[in-house]
Structures are given as structure tokens and as C-alpha cells.
Design a protein around this nucleic acid. Structure first.
Ligand SMILES: [Zn+2]
Ligand SMILES: [Zn+2]
Ligand SMILES: [Zn+2]
Ligand SMILES: [Zn+2]
Lengths: 161, 161
DNA sequence: AGGGATATGTTATATATTAACATTTTACCA
DNA sequence: TGGTAAAATGTTAATATATAACATATCCCT
């Protein structure tokens, strides 16, 4: 069964509770399939990341967690983030030193982001073969063998214009 | 007069002294044209960045400068880097928190980098209209107004294969 | 239940960046 | 040519981001 079709994340008014619920359910499924453990800490960090579509820094996660449990130290969050990244559940936004939930975590994939300077939301492109092909073509012209890519576009999103 | 045609920077053996000399000369011209001051500190930082095609961190620059002058503090380097960035003489590699000399500083431009995991060199693509067009097309399809872009590809460069 | 692998706790440190204010140097003009 | 405002640099301190190293707890399998 394919996931519910939902408006793109830049649509400011949408049923965001459904975004969160879907993300958590998808994470459970991914981890079950990968044979990795979706512990309560990892779940909590993922939930916090999904509170919005704005990338959040590791330290803002630490602050949030400290409201629930004092003495939350950096490694707690960084380990959870490492796990979530390895399991394709979150992406790191390099230009912000921040993290955002993956909007289609079904399998490993390259990602491209559009990040709004106004509302701070990051939208992950779905199936942007156009950009991936352009990069692949350019790389093969040069004889460069790609292993990963970072594509982060900033500007103003449609809802903010 | 157009600049000398030189092998791409990933070619491991090339006359790198010429890279440095060209970069400094271009910087002088850019600053003269912009009416900005290419002071000795800024020149020294740019020279250090151009010691190789590997992006260098701010702290490695501080360490280098301290060999020449003790008490070199972070703001010294960060200010020079800020100036060099504003004048399109260096680029920041977001995924590395590091800086690399711009290979075609003639005018403001978007940049795309291929970064080798083996030799650590970063090559700036010249005139990659293909990638820029793909990004522009994708953005306009979504109604997103671009203000800047970060494209950083990692992998293995031709010389390292 | 035993024992290795995995996850978490804890302390400390490394790395990266910026704020704020003091002093010096430069460019420009009266 | 001296005066002066802007720009650049010096200096101290704080903040932000990330990892190392080792201890303890928990889980999974037999
Ligand atoms: Zn949502
Ligand atoms: Zn927006
Ligand atoms: Zn060179
Ligand atoms: Zn290489």
C-alpha cells in the first residue's frame, strides 16, 4: 500500500500530525526490516526532529531533551543522530549544521533540499532525477566516481512569497 | 587576454606554482576593480589557502600563521576569510567546514565542487550550466525562488582511480 | 543463567565561530 | 600638512558544534 498523498511540506497549513505519525511508523518498519533497534531514545529524538519541517541543531535537541530528563549530554543526541542517519531516517543539512526528518525513508537515496530563508522550512525533493542526472553526467564527463552528494538550495518558498 | 589554459586541478602533477601566482594576481585585479583593499594579511591567508587544492580549515590556517607570528587569534583568520569570500576569492565547503581558493574569481557566480575522498582535493566546476539549469528548472517547477546554492559531490577523482 | 554485542551514561576535550571593545592604520580633505 | 572618520587589526572572552575515552547497563542468543 503506498503512503497517503499529502501536500508538499512547504504548504504551510497541512496536517502535520500525520507527517509525524507517518515518519514514526516508517521508522519502525525500516528498522524492523534492517534488523536495527528503534529504541525509545532514538524514537524520541526522531519525534523531536519531526516537530516541524525546520532543520534542528543537535544542541537544540539537547535542550529539548533536558526538559524531559536533566543531564542529557551531547553523546546521547549525537549517537541517536548517527543511528538515524545511517538508517536513512534523517538528513544532515551541511550548510546549517542541522538535521531534518527524511520525507521518504523507504530506501537509501541521494537527497536535494530547498530551504526557505523566511520560514526556515526545508523541503526534500522527491525523485529529482533531473538534478541527479545533471550531476551524474557532469561527473562522468570528468571521470569522477560519485559516492555522495550534497545539494542545498536556499531562497524563498512558494508559501512565503 | 584570457588566462593560460592549464590542466584541471585534479591532475595531480601540474605546475601548481602557476596556480598560486595566477590566484594572487587575479586577487589583486579583483580588489583593484572592486575598490577593496588586498592587505598583506588577506594576501597571506589567500596564499596559504592556495598551498594546495585541498580545502583547509580556519584552524589549520591559524596554526600556519602562528608559525610566522605568535598570538594569531581566530578573528584574524575569520576576518580575512570573510573578506576573501565577499570578494569571490575563496569558497567555503559546507560539508567540510573548510575553505578553498576560487578557480575563476572573475565575477560572482554559483559554484559546484567535486571532492576526492582519496587525495582530498576539491575541484570547482567551470561553467556547469547543466547542473545550474537542472536546479533552476526544479525550483521554478515548485515555485521556489533561489538565492543561493550549495553543491558538493564527494567520490574518487580521475587521478586517484 | 552466561556471555558477547549493542546501547547508554559520564566526563572531558577538541574543533569551529562570533561578540565586544581597544588600538592602529589608512584614506581623504580642510 | 595636520585632522579626522572609516577601515583594518589586536585582544579577550564567550558561544556553538562535535568527538574521544572509558564505565555501566541492557539486550539477544544459546
Ligand atoms: Zn508536516
Ligand atoms: Zn517559506
Ligand atoms: Zn594547482
Ligand atoms: Zn583524488
Amino acid at each position: 500500500m503506498s503512503p497517503t498523498v499529502r501536500p508538499p511540506s512547504f504548504t504551510h497549513k497541512h496536517n502535520h500530525a500525520a507527517c509525524i505519525a507517518d515518519a514514526i511508523k516508517a521508522a519502525e518498519q525500516c528498522c524492523a526490516q534492517n534488523g536495527t533497534r528503534f529504541t525509545s531514545q532514538r524514537r524520541r529524538v526522531l519525534e523531536l526532529i519531526w516537530q516541524s519541517h525546520k532543520p534542528v541543531t543537535a544542541y537544540s535537541l539537547i535542550k529539548s531533551l533536558r526538559k524531559e530528563k536533566e543531564n542529557t549530554e551531547p553523546p546521547t543526541v549525537y549517537r541517536a543522530l548517527e543511528f538515524l542517519q545511517e538508517n536513512n531516517l534523517v538528513h544532515r543539512i551541511e550548510s546549517l549544521n542541522a538535521f531534518v526528518g527524511c520525507e521518504h525513508p523507504e530506501k537509501e537515496h541521494r537527497s536535494q533540499f530547498m530551504i526557505c530563508n523566511q520560514c526556515d522550512q526545508a523541503m526534500e525533493l522527491r525523485n529529482s532525477r533531473r538534478i541527479e542526472n545533471a550531476i551524474s553526467t557532469e561527473a562522468s564527463k570528468l571521470g569522477f566516481a560519485i559516492s555522495s552528494s550534497t545539494v542545498e538550495i536556499t531562497g524563498i518558498c512558494p508559501s512565503c512569497q
